[in-house]
């Protein structure tokens, strides 16, 4: 699949700090790409660079195979961007503002009205369309910001923390909206809500201090960080005796701990199992539980969350750095 966005050896320095250093990653066409990193790691700066609103010190950015620096005037038409601070005119009405943006972003005059209506409905803004933007709550301001980025139907959409300030229901709506947007479009979204990324994105890039530390499809990265497979089982009956038998049968290969569920009326236990990725012992474990008449209720695999990956990935860099420092000392 071809790449919608390609970032090659990008470096951006501000007065004292290197906000982005030698960053390389790509976003596949038609994918939803998550962009993660701790505060101040350079996410917003990178997004501004991709949009051509900032000029990098070195490196290049290709959108649809064309360089943003040289083809800015043409490329900007296919970009929709929600910056960290949404660019809103505080004393305009919501509807008036979206209409204005549609106008300057080249929606033909005859289609403006229809387009504005659709986008207001899509972003859940119909209720507030006659309100002044300056008087809106944070969540609604954010929605207006998203509407602004989508009104001209762009191919490449960059959203910097689209779910900031939204309540759970609105987050759900936003997720639905983003899923609807997929298709031909390419989305790059940075978010602090790692759950969001997990549910939406097929690929992620994790950065730290301006450098890419992980980049690839979510499942790939997941398996990289998941040394062991984790399973959860629920059973009716379990006790120390069965546990010992289990230890005897599987030894140290499969790690098991069990726990009685407190909230259930009838007796129920939950088992946490960890087994190596290399040999598949699922059926053996199940057979064992059935043989022991444990009353197997469920057996399912637990995959590690993005949160865990994020923690592990960013921690890994720290470890590397620390060991480097130590070796220098």
């Amino acid at each position: 699949m071809e790449n919608a966005i390609e970032v090659n050896n990008l470096t951006k320095e501000f007065a004292q700090i290197k906000a982005v250093s030698n960053m390389t990653f790509s976003v596949k066409k038609g994918s939803i790409h998550g962009f993660l990193g701790p505060n101040g790691s350079g996410k917003s700066t990178t997004m501004n660079l991709i949009c051509g609103l900032l000029v990098p010190n070195s490196g290049e950015i290709l959108i649809g195979g064309k360089k943003i620096e040289t083809d800015f005037d043409q490329l900007k038409r296919s970009i929709g961007f929600l910056p960290e601070d949404p660019p809103l005119y505080k004393n305009m009405l919501v509807e008036e503002y979206i209409k204005f943006v549609a106008g300057i972003r080249g929606v033909p005059n005859s289609k403006v009205k229809k387009r504005v209506e659709t986008i207001l409905a899509q972003c859940g803004l119909e209720k507030v369309k006659r309100r002044r933007i300056g008087n809106l709550s944070l969540g609604y301001t954010q929605k207006v910001g998203v509407a602004q980025a989508l009104v001209h139907d762009p191919d490449v959409v960059l959203l910097d923390e689209p779910t900031r300030g939204l309540d759970p229901e609105a987050v759900d709506e936003m997720r639905k909206l983003i899923k609807e947007l997929k298709g031909e479009r390419t989305l790059l979204l940075s978010s602090h809500l790692l759950n969001e990324v997990q549910n939406l994105c097929s690929e992620i890039t994790i950065i730290k201090e301006g450098q890419v530390i992980q980049n690839g499809s979510l499942s790939e990265i997941r398996s990289l960080f998941q040394q062991q497979r984790m399973f959860k089982a629920e059973v009716r009956k379990f006790n120390e005796e069965i546990y010992q038998a289990f230890r005897l049968r599987f030894g140290k290969v499969v790690n098991l701990n069990f726990e009685k569920k407190k909230e259930e009326k009838s007796e129920e236990y939950s088992l946490n199992l960890k087994m190596p990725k290399t040999d598949d012992l699922r059926s053996e474990v199940c057979n064992f539980l059935v043989d022991k008449k444990c009353g197997l209720l469920s057996f399912s695999e637990e995959s590690i969350g993005v949160e865990e990956i994020f923690r592990l990935a960013t921690a890994e860099v720290n470890v590397k750095e620390n060991s480097l420092k130590e070796s220098l000392l």
């Binding site: 949009c51 609103l53 005037d73 900007k76 038409r77 970009i79 961007f81 910056p83 601070d85 660019p87 809103l88 005119y89 505080k90 943006v101 300057i104 972003r105 080249g106 602004q148």
Partner: peptide, 14 residues
């Protein structure tokens, strides 16, 4: 101040 200049720069306006 309100970062709306970026909106104009990304629009079709030169």
């Amino acid at each position: 101040k309100f970062k709306t200049l970026d909106l104009l720069f990304l629009s079709h306006l030169s």
